[in-house]
Design a protein around this nucleic acid. Structure first.
Lengths: 341, 341
DNA sequence: TTGTACGCGTTATCAA
DNA sequence: TTGATAACGCGTACAA
């Protein structure tokens, strides 16, 4: 491969190999079988010599596959989003795809713009992990033949594939664990569900499950920057009576972080007050006595999202997929009540 | 804006506006002044009506600016990288650019491939935050006219712009703080510097500064998964004698995390043993008694990187830039020695 | 000031 | 099995 200031084109390869550019194109478009053995060799050799790689720009301008996958995230700094992104990126790489990441910083206007931008880049597939998502914009993608996968979200008015946590299993697992550990007064803390379906699903399951088991359960639904709301409920939880230990279930990693902060500020000891959170975080083993979590298999989720895209690409009318992954319990001290009496 | 199954082209706008496509092209290529007022209005109206957006594919195929910026990261899960990515993304958005993120997972082969891929997408600029970076590949970008910015790294054999932390200032700030707080036996913990110039710079400054001040300083240079090495040195540090308090300086966030884990496992109390780390992390206020850090202005760094790219784009032979940002001390309990006597 | 014609690198449609 | 030719959407000489 000779280093060229300008990348080699299909034409140069064709000339060097003494064949037409059509043949070279065929060689790279998965129609090698239709070429004679000699031709295949000559093309391969010529391409090697000039260091040829098909130009994805020209390819997708012509309407071919772009090899680009778009990801729309509401908050790129959310560790969960990062973990998923890692999974996606890995899967893309394996599939020879490139990933275009767009962060909307929770701004619907940005989202619109980002979607338009990705559309103009003719992405082959779109993975969405954003809340206030414009159904109409998404539908545009779908109708124009671009597969869309919703991550950890679902939208009532747009029918696309969905991948995420098995929220029911997660909530059940959390409650079962808390109960088994001797906690019976449960407080569920979540950000306002609003558009985020997974928040809704988790909340709903928590309510019905607790009702079913006759547990003493309450719910705090608040923005995380609202310290007052948080502090008030945490304090109310504090009087620990041995026959009805209280515990907190955090709906996601951001909540866990906020709660851990406030508990420390209020000098509440986890363990005494049970604490379990959905989403595993780097530091959960660090705080005394460690925070029990339900880890999501983020790499698998990312992989599944890409799988969905590719499946639908090959069969545009495939059945709508809904893949839910079970979490893994990582038990730490925060759900270990101190020996009583 | 009417929803169209196929995106509008420049030609449709031209027809609708009753002008030539050349004029429409000019309108979108920053030559509006050369068009008559009436024409500008007609074009604007027509474009609005059909929802026209210039096709970046066609634009860059022709050799024009692609509006794409590439980012190569060695470890997408590193919180520092994420923070920088956020800054980059923000800056890109403001500048109307799109960001293509490539993660190499610390694999040089992947890096090569990713670089080739970005090159084939005709990125307008490249931001690199990766260690074992192939200088030759980078030089290819530079010679082909694509600006390259090195993030938190520098390469001896390739002359490109660099943006990152002011390592000297950071180390000085950390040492000054530790000394002011009454610590005098310093242990610097870092991952092997190898290719990473910022690690080298920090380490070198630590050595020279401590030598200059006659401080009792030692260095541990280890892979973070090597628990033994870590534990051994931490234990050796433990005997706290009041006239020579020990303190640890962590070279970056990953080190801080590892050290915090091991200190907890060994039941070493920070504060008694001083602890300060470069890079601010979500959870540093959570562990008892909180970890003092030097926060990098990551958004500013991201912004600066994009600025560099754009500057060089307009003046390819501009002076090589080297922008170093000072960190901010965030003081917490880990550098607050307990009252003695 | 505005329009015509060509080329960017590729693929699809033909005809050989 | 191969090759010539026309798009894809845009920028830009050049001519008007």
């Amino acid at each position: 491969m000779t280093a060229a200031s300008r990348p080699a084109t299909i034409l140069e390869v064709a000339h060097l190999a003494g064949v037409s550019k059509t043949s070279v194109s065929r060689y790279y478009s998965g129609e090698r079988e239709r070429l004679s053995a000699t031709m295949q060799e000559r093309i391969s050799a010529a391409a090697e010599q000039v260091g040829y790689h098909p130009n994805p720009l020209a390819r997708s301008l012509k309407g071919g596959p772009s090899g680009l996958v778009g990801m729309l995230v509401a908050d790129i700094r959310n560790p969960f989003s990062v973990a998923i992104m890692h999974g996606l990126e890995q899967a893309c790489r394996q599939a020879g795809l490139s990933l275009m990441v767009c962060n909307s910083d929770n701004d619907p206007d940005q989202e619109r713009q980002q979607l338009a931008m990705m559309s103009s880049w003719r992405i082959e597939g779109l993975v969405v992990n954003a809340a206030g998502c414009h159904s109409d914009a998404l539908r545009q993608f779908v109708t124009s033949g671009t597969p869309v996968v919703l991550l950890d979200r679902s939208l009532a008015d747009v029918q696309v594939d969905e991948v995420g946590l098995d929220n029911t299993a997660a909530i059940d697992m959390a409650i079962d664990h808390l109960v088994a550990q001797g906690y019976s007064r449960l407080l569920y803390i979540t950000e306002p569900p609003a558009q985020a379906s997974s928040r809704q699903a988790r909340l709903a399951r928590f309510e019905s499950r607790c009702a079913g088991q006759g547990l003493d359960a309450t719910i705090l639904c608040t923005e995380l920057h609202d310290q007052q709301a948080l502090d008030q409920r945490l304090r109310a939880l504090a009087p620990v009576v041995s026959h009805a230990r209280p515990a907190i279930l955090c709906a996601n990693g951001q909540v866990t972080l906020a709660v851990a902060h406030r508990m420390r500020a209020l000098d509440l000891r986890s363990g005494e007050i049970g604490l379990i959170g959905i989403d595993e975080l780097d530091w959960c083993g660090l705080t005394e006595p460690g925070i029990t979590t339900l880890a999501q298999p983020t790499d698998a989720i990312g992989q599944a999202a890409i799988d969905c895209l590719r499946t639908r690409q090959h069969d545009r009318s495939a059945d709508r997929q809904y893949r839910a992954f079970a979490p893994q319990l990582i038990q730490r001290g925060s759900t270990q009540p101190p020996a009583s009496h």
